[in-house]
Amino acid sequence: MEEEFEVAEHDGDIPVLAVRGEIDVSTAPELRDRLVQINQRGTTTVVVDLSEVSFLDSTALGVLVSGLKRFRSAGGDLRLVVTGRSVSKVLEITGLHEVFKIYETAEAAVSA
């Protein structure tokens, strides 16, 4: 049984989007829409917590990269929380681990 996809937003000076489940071509649009909504509120920095993500493909990476561009062009950043091997491996394969700022906990990402 696959884990259900879920995106929950935790408010704060820097909002945290906690994602659970598998991010693929069918679920990535929801993550993209949440990032766009946060950006349109005038927020310049966001944390995307991927510690409960069990699968992430190239379309999910595309959403994260476009989100990163959006937030950085507004003078802020999109920070990632990554703890799982499957997610860190995809980031390393594609070289994106050198593009994103990656943290081990949401607290560390928020306070960075």
Partner: peptide, 19 residues
């Protein structure tokens, strides 16, 4: 069929090459 999100052939190829 990938519809609502942009498909990156480059990222996809890099992943396949590695795996």
């Amino acid at each position: 069929a990938t519809g609502a999100v942009t498909f990156s052939a480059d990222l996809s190829a890099r992943i396949l090459d590695a795996l």
